[in-house]
Nucleic acid binder design. Structure first.
Lengths: 335, 335
DNA sequence: ACTGTTTCTGAAAACGGTTTCATAGTGTCT
DNA sequence: AGACACTATGAAACCGTTTTCAGAAACAGT
């Protein structure tokens, strides 16, 4: 059932039928009614591909995330999906399994079927990104590249707060568990290092680790091989892995070692002890990114409007506590 | 840059260019080479909408899940995405936030842009489903409806095992925390009831609960208002919520109350104590569903091939243990 | 009654591919 | 050398909308 059959049945031209569906006010109400009934009787529904072809836009948006089952990605995706739908767009989701090659392929495939693309923590090289942005409007989340609008999470301050917090609890040797290469470690790392030197904390780094539970497990043993009393993990999933493994090895959290995560996904409240973590406003970031993307799509050139930053905040829960006074083991009767 | 410009530059007809991209072996290698270089120089990429229109298929599949951030959905989606990509399809994902109306709308919107649709635990009414299946090939996961191929999770046996397990541990009063209405509670419930009566366990039910952590929290207090010593929760997220709340109220798991979940998502291994849970092979289910869907799409009419069932299995971890001998409080010196 | 606006509708040309059908060219077999 | 089968290509129709452009109809103003 095409537009023509509807037209025939309603005794009008195809053009009129098209208008009924795209700019109803432009057609006389009587005619409109006739067309509508004809359409309903024929159970006509417009053909999106034909429409896309003719108008030059698809009405779809796309998002590429590193890992669909990662809880931060999920949070973002959910917010994005909701916002996209609210604006009348459907959402394509592609996961790359953290494989850069897949990510590029997915992105390119999607690029041609959508009006705009949101890339979350993309790992692909700069030139690939620019090439992509050449094909379709692109907004990035968590990566900065000249000429491509982006939403960034500014965690410098929040990371400082985390170190400050640990320092106040008496920790003097802290290690940062870095996320995967190409992920937004830099700001956190800078915040971490700066804060360490500012507070006189001995800061070290381990990694990179994949942003997953299993890698947290692995990380824990590496941590225990050092003599730090606190760790700051790239994300909650790693942090939870660390906590688990430490528990298995009989190390108390926060009794012996304190752990800080990032993201404040629901996970943080689910585990024991509840995770002290840097909250990243994923939903806000996702929603904002979509708004930027739609501005782009609609031609309002926000391209050079400086990248938006959303900032994190430290949420203190139970996985951080006073440092065990390791350097002074005699002192049995602490306050 | 359309196919015609490539054709002009390569000195061939548009038809030939099209063939180069769709059935390369049908064109002489010399010609093919010429076309390829021309295409590259022009940075030509085929226009999916045009192609969809002409061929009558889109090369896309769609999946509608109740909640993108639900860990079981995420597992399924991930597997589905991978399998779809492997078969050369891109995947549309839509979340319905568990709102039936949104689900219907999403599904219908998607239906026209994809070659096939996978519905995960759909909550929409039968006639809506049938109408949808009339428009596009549909496979359902976790719901059975005559005429629509489906992949079902048969958890009857696994649920029985859960009850058997609890019974063996000495539990005599167990409650089932039901998931949301319209979700696949029935088989589990049947398995639960049958097993209870078989083993002489007093089985009760609470709910429905949304399949989320928060509802688990809520459920815990309801559980404590009864005198059961064990609960079987609709999914891991609810189970974790229960465990958390119980801990907050000073109830030991499994010391005082044992908890069993469903799904065996990664969550189960992340929490303390690790969750005894019924593993549902989400990846297998998702992959299988996609294969069925593709069979459908390609016209091999598997429509009436009986719905496929994947079965669960009980994974015993640490959230279940011997029942506290409540009815006999004198007995202080238990073995 | 005549011109000037509006409002509504239709004809036809895109949009960018795919595919059928016919034709030219090449090679094979007797 | 002639008949026959392939193979490689091109011309043109088609997929289902949208949109421009122009004309018809209705209406207003003088």
């Amino acid at each position: 059932m095409s537009i023509r059959e509807v037209a025939a049945r309603a005794g009008v031209s195809p053009a009129t039928v098209s208008r009924v569906f795209t700019q109803p006010q432009a057609v006389a109400s009587e005619t409109r009614r006739r067309v509508m009934t004809a359409a309903e009787e024929l159970r006509y529904a417009p053909h999106p591909a034909a429409s896309s072809l003719a108008r030059g836009r698809t009405g779809n948006l796309g998002i590429v995330v590193p890992d669909i089952s990662n809880s931060f990605s999920a949070l973002v995706t959910k917010a994005v999906d909701r916002q996209a739908r609210r604006d009348g767009y459907a959402l394509f989701v592609a996961g790359s399994d953290e494989v850069v090659h897949d990510e590029e392929a997915s992105a390119r495939a999607l690029a041609q079927q959508v009006d705009g693309l949101l890339l979350v923590s993309p790992g692909m090289p700069n030139d690939a990104l620019l090439a992509l942005a050449d094909v379709t409007p692109v907004v990035m989340l968590n990566r900065l590249l000249d000429g491509i609008p982006a939403v960034l999470t500014n965690l410098y301050e929040a990371t400082s707060h985390a170190v400050e917090h640990l320092h106040a609890l008496g920790h003097r040797a802290v290690t940062y568990l870095a996320g995967p290469d190409g992920y937004p470690n830099d700001v956190r790392l800078r915040g971490f290092r700066d804060a360490c030197s500012r507070f006189g904390v001995e800061g070290s780094e381990l990694g990179p680790f994949a942003a997953r539970f299993q890698d947290g497990i692995r990380a824990a043993d590496l941590v225990l091989a050092t003599s730090v009393t606190a760790v700051v993990a790239y994300n909650d999933e790693i942090a939870v892995g660390v906590v688990n493994r430490l528990a298995d090895r009989g190390i108390a959290v926060p009794g012996d070692i304190s752990v800080v995560g990032f993201d404040d996904t629901q996970l943080a409240e689910m585990v024991t002890p509840r995770l002290t973590t840097v909250r990243i406003p994923a939903a806000v970031a996702g929603t904002t990114a979509i708004e930027m993307l739609l501005d782009l799509v609609r031609g309002r050139d926000v391209g050079l409007r400086s990248p938006l930053e959303v900032s994190g905040e430290l949420v203190v829960r139970s996985s951080t506590g006073p440092a065990r006074s390791l350097p002074d083991p005699d002192q049995e009767s602490a306050p």
